[in-house]
Design a protein around this nucleic acid. Structure first.
Lengths: 155, 155
DNA sequence: TTGTAATAGTTGTTTTTGTAACTAACAAGG
DNA sequence: CCTTGTTAGTTACAAAAACAACTATTACAA
């Protein structure tokens, strides 16, 4: 590592980079739990949590809420159903849609993981001054809500 | 979407989740640029930036600084060298290590992307009150620095 | 020396993800 | 009714990431 240059750009302050680093580190410990304890992937615990929190939902609803692509959901749902964490039932009036819901097993896993998440979040949050924590959460929510840049062209 | 439950857990406030959402959204626009303009992957622009910022480095040094696994670096370096963005040279005194450095082409790409990053970061930053921004960055740095949980067991 | 452990970096194989194309069901205008 | 367009969800294939095992080189202590 030699010849530092400058032109005043600090990678450590570049928000996308910084956010990724923080997200990665802070996800690790929780990932360990849902992976080791239930063999789940990130997409799967997210689906599980949405169903645990909001009750019955369709894949599209989960996709919208969690900003996940439908193929991710499809696969996560498939694996969760396979392992009896959730059940799928066709809508009678519109047979394209499926209503998803947790089984007792899914509920149990959700409740367990929810406690782990709560505890872990308290550990993380505890490192901050309450006012700063609120600022942090507010900022992250704002960033997460930013409209995706439209890739289409021409008028 | 029916029967909301509660037990007071809000997914939207769970830091690992929130951080991932923010990171993902805020990375998209920049990704578009390095991908479309130089055909790079995330690992590749990171290596490029480290070399652009700090001059000559070895793979291990980059790995430490960027918290990337050495196989990621190895492959990123391979692709960058292949496309003539960087050069590799064996260390004479320790022939295991390789010193990496940007070519003129790599420098140019770096400078270009650095400007894009700077501009984009200003856009993002501009959404916040300066004090809040500082709080945000400080918090993210703290989270990013958290020690990884030791997976080993027993005393 | 020499044999054991450590380090730098690479390669092979398996999982996950991304992307696009696909099927099935519905909607709505003619 | 038909055709055309849209939506829910799946599947196939390509790209990328994760993980483990590997080679080559150095360190260092018996």
């Amino acid at each position: 590592m030699t010849t530092p240059e400058n032109d005043t750009f600090d990678l450590q302050d570049f928000l996308p980079y910084l956010l990724n680093q923080a997200a990665e580190v802070s996800s690790l410990e929780f990932q360990q739990v849902y992976k080791d304890r239930y063999g789940m992937l990130r997409t799967e615990w997210r689906v599980l949590f949405h169903l645990g929190l909001y009750g019955s939902m369709t894949a599209v609803e989960i996709g919208t809420a969690a900003k996940m692509h439908k193929t991710k959901i499809s696969r996560a749902v498939h694996r969760l159903a396979e392992r009896r964490f959730l059940t799928r039932s066709r809508d009678e009036s519109d047979r394209r849609v499926e209503h998803l819901g947790l089984t007792a097993r899914g509920q149990a896993a959700y409740k367990d993981l929810r406690e782990v998440a709560r505890t872990y979040d308290e550990t993380l949050s505890g490192q901050f001054d309450p006012a700063d924590l609120e600022t942090l959460r507010k900022a992250l929510r704002l960033l997460a809500q930013m409209p995706p840049v439209d890739k289409a062209k021409g008028p």
